[in-house]
Design a protein around this nucleic acid. Structure first.
Lengths: 195, 195
DNA sequence: GTAGCTTGTTGAGCGTTGCTCAGCAAGCGG
DNA sequence: CCGCTTGCTGAGCAACGCTCAACAAGCTAC
């Protein structure tokens, strides 16, 4: 019995990189159903088929772990939103907006989980969100060919909050044709930054 | 010695109502510095000078406790925002907006803590926020003498998100005279609901 | 092949925290 | 003084984050 105490898991060794990637991947899969900070080491380790201790070998602390997961999630979203190279400048913002709405339509729980943790308690996590939003603001102002002074940055960031909230509600209860929603959002943004 | 065995803690008994109020009050005081879900039973009990067990006598679960704290905080805010009776209809929205900005200016940490927990993980807490926002939407639409169809409700709610975000940033870095901030917010709201 | 090194991996265990439970004791009516 | 209600406590359990000493898989060197 001692020899065959692991019928399925013959104690296979992975490279450090693989293991880390696997653990982050598991976090990403759990993210839509569980608030980042609430996923337990036990659960993640169990899914990975490893002991709790090993997770602490790769991430010194739990916070370090779920910060990595959050950063990975942010990267996935960013990459999805970034316009394909060669897109005419005028279509870039509209395209990003369109893809954003599409993303929320496709993964409503993921969107909730993402927006949810934005300011949620942990400063490390908040920092990741602010970084991501910062990049998006910069991108938006650049493609709109507008200077990014402090006021405009604030307005675009607040417009993000507006957009996230409205799209979130709209997906749950579409009170408007999709096209009009996009038009409205775009219109609000234009009026805000054109001051 | 037995007679004077009450150096600091004469084991005084409080009425159920008093204790509950005291515990919620302690939660409110801790709220600005600690995310609601993270305040520990130990800490609260210690501040109240009671044992952990007693807290569970009044609140069956930790969640029940901090939900009560959240609700109390929401009530404080609501009461602060509600217009004094007899205010002319036209000034009500402006007055609420003004008081809201004032509140954020006075208690920036409290505001952060409040907005922070809005969607933050716990559905019980989120419900309190949605209730509060719902009341404010109803109030706003009523005083603006507009019908509150689904679309308009969504727009006003999204405008709240916009306002909370922008005011939060503005307090940290005032990029605009206060009056103009209020005007801008009011203007955005008017344009949004006048469709 | 086997000795030895690196390093992925584990189990036992500690401190904290949410929560339970049996029972003590403060205040009051008889 | 008795007994009842009920505010209140301490001991203790389970779950969780985290530590640490040690095991073992896979490689290289002889």
């Amino acid at each position: 019995m001692t020899a065959s105490s692991r019928p399925e898991h013959p104690r296979l060794r992975r490279s450090a990189g693989d293991r880390r990637a696997q653990l982050v991947q598991i976090g990403l899969e759990l993210l839509p159903t569980t608030p980042v900070q609430e996923l337990t080491i036990d659960e993640v380790a169990r899914r990975a088929g490893i002991s709790r201790s090993l997770l602490f070998h790769y991430f010194a602390t739990k916070r370090e772990y779920y910060t990595a997961v959050t950063r990975a999630a942010a990267d996935v979203l960013l990459e999805h939103l970034l316009p394909a190279p060669g897109t005419p400048a005028e279509q870039q913002v509209t395209g990003m907006l369109d893809r954003y709405v599409g993303w929320v339509e496709t993964f409503p729980e993921s969107h909730l989980a993402f927006v949810r943790g934005a300011g949620g308690g942990d400063p490390w996590v908040s920092e990741v969100y602010e970084e991501t939003r910062g990049k998006l603001v910069e991108l938006a102002l650049t493609t709109l060919e507008l200077p990014d002074d402090a006021l405009r940055r604030q307005l675009v960031l607040a417009w993000f909050a507006f957009t996230e909230d409205l799209v979130g509600q709209w997906v749950a209860e579409p009170t408007l044709p999709r096209t009009e929603l996009l038009g409205l959002l775009r219109d609000v943004l234009d009026r805000l930054v054109a001051r």
